[in-house]
Design a protein around this nucleic acid. Structure first.
Lengths: 215, 215, 215, 215
DNA sequence: AATGAATGAGTTTTCATTCAT
DNA sequence: AATGAATGAAAACTCATTCAT
């Protein structure tokens, strides 16, 4: 009964989501300021009026996008990082693997791209993303590294700064590909090879014992 | 050469540069599309008409900024990378040190910020920056790493992908600070400590022999 | 007649009236052009569609309000003025007393306020109100005054212009209070005191014999 | 040199005034909410952009109109009322005569019409007009009447309420003519005859001695 | 009879660009 | 060379009206 019975249905409660999808696509393509609400509407297959029926302003669209996308992120990644007890390299591997899998999906990469582009124009994005994601994930990573250092698994690195060494290469890899079209020879992003190379260097770099961490 | 030869020359040919400075500041602050030519003129201390006297359009401003800034970059960094023969960790250290020193200067960080923000909107930025900087610096780095691997100084890492491990942490460090206001405990960017930690991990990660590389 | 005959009749035919009540309130508050049909519906406790079920357009609402309100006015006031034979000051006193009593009721004052606001925008209001009210009441008043002058009860005033001296002060009193919040000391409109003062001056001003007109 | 040398001059500093003139005309004709900025611009003979060059919003136009018009009013009328020492009927006659002369000029009547129409929508109009005009003129009138009562020239009327009897008939006369097209027989507003009849009744009504006030 | 989601024409507002001075 | 008043095309936003349910 609550399933969508026919092809032609009004009052789809999916509307706001469809509008946000369209807005995300247009914002990423043109940038927020250069995007036209008219085009968002067209891509969502509705009229301009309908966009304003669900969102009070153009700015509310970007806010809606960020809120909708950011909420689930931390929830998924965090538990793994926090609960794991043993060798910190295991959850780090998992985190990067999950991130890389996300980034392989074009819809998933759109939000980070939008955030990077617009964070300077919309302070609320910085605040919101910090509160909901960074301030949860980064301290968890820091604790993880600190535990590794304390337990002697990791060398005496600075936990806070080392976080940059974990996520930075990933950021660089995606930025080079997405922004400048620079990919490793072969033509695609070669995500698996990249993660392997990154973790190889990283774990060699931070572990006290050379190599046995991975089989 | 930089002295003012006559008494009544006003700042003469400095005008276009002053306009570009102002435009850069405004574009970084608001984003290109949201920036107003009016405000560029006001900050440059000239009238709107004068801006159009030197630049045919708003878009010419961003082009001017990118061209002016990008040209000198490659020229400075390249020779070091290319000519150095011995241990590749030396020029890498130099490169990162130079980069970090640049990024400490607010004017110098503005251009990369602008490029990151607007590449997606202005394909010419991607092309230009690729041609002038990335396609020169990155292959040089790749060759450097490959030489290190071949000569046995470095472990068998993938040279192309390892470039991401060299510049990525720097990118992450600056992005966290500039975009989200996230800095290591202590309140400033702690650039020296960061580079030290980064290189420590990196060189441990890529070298065949543990630590003696640097005195 | 005003009882609800059956249990399940809802408020049936009262609907259009409730809509007009709501429209009147909103129109007076915001002005016709700035009022939204949406808000009229909300205040009437119905949906926007229902408003259009009873009235073909927004303009039909203002027309409905004016028609509904104006019809009964003349009918009530007129007979008294026309049929009275003796001292004209008696029906004038009655007229002003009735008017003042009306104006004390907030619902009753709303229509004149609306008419004053919107006559200039809706010529039909001017025509309609003129035909239904002014062209009936004013000539009756003029005849009344003329009879008073002819019979020697009133001084030789211009009957047509004197009508302004009868209703004008009332208009001023209400306008000052309703539009500018200016009331006599004491805080309320002091309607009784005002009518007494007004009639005192008026009758002194138009009567041939000083004061004994009223006991 | 600062005179306007040629027919064709830009940067007329009269521009803002011309725009306000046009806005006043349109607002009175259609009402503020129904007026289009486009039409204001057209009537002022400038482009829409120029309107916004001088006024930041449509609302600023109505504010500009009210401020420009209201400022001089009180200044002109007040001194006469305040300084006069003798028979209060003299300054009252002067006040009404001046008002009537003003109202004979179509441009002068436009502002009061606009204020009456829009005062309910723009609270600042009520406040501003009260502060600048009503709260200055009305107390002056009240004091004038009180002096008359105290000195025995006037009967024991309530000074505050009597103000309504002075200005009310004028208000009624103008409202009937301007809003409903109702004029005394003869076709025009017959302003002189009206003032004569009004003052005749008023002074008869409020004076202790029947008639000699006027020759 | 009643709803309220959807529309799109119409309005306010913005701003890059021009040009007379 | 420099100005800044003026423009008008384009964009955000509103709201009376419609119509499938």
């Amino acid at each position: 009964m609550t399933e969508t019975p026919k092809k032609f249905r009004r009052r789809a409660e999916a509307r706001p989501d469809e509008v946000l999808d369209a807005a995300l696509a247009v914002f990423v393509e043109k940038g927020y300021a250069a995007a036209k609400v008219d085009e968002v509407a067209r891509r969502a297959g509705v009229s301009k009026g309908t966009v304003y029926l669900y969102f009070p302003s153009k700015e509310a669209l970007i806010e809606g996008i960020v809120r909708r996308a950011v909420a689930p992120i931390a929830l998924r990644a965090l538990p793994d990082l926090e609960t794991y007890e043993g060798d910190p390299r295991v959850p780090i591997t998992m985190l990067l693997t999950v991130l890389i899998q996300q980034l392989a999906r074009p819809e998933a990469i759109a939000v980070p791209k939008l955030i990077l582009r617009e964070v300077l124009s919309f302070p609320f994005i910085a605040t919101f993303y910090r509160n909901e994601v960074l301030d949860k994930v980064m301290p968890a990573l820091v604790r993880l590294i600190r535990r590794g250092v304390d337990s002697g698994t990791l060398r005496k690195v600075d936990p806070e700064l080392t976080v940059r060494s974990i996520i930075g290469p990933l950021l660089a890899h995606v930025a080079l590909g997405e922004l400048f079209g620079i990919m490793p020879e072969g033509g695609d992003l070669a995500l698996d090879r990249f993660v392997a190379n990154h973790l190889d260097i990283l774990f060699h770099g931070i572990s006290t014992q050379p190599a046995e961490a991975r089989p």
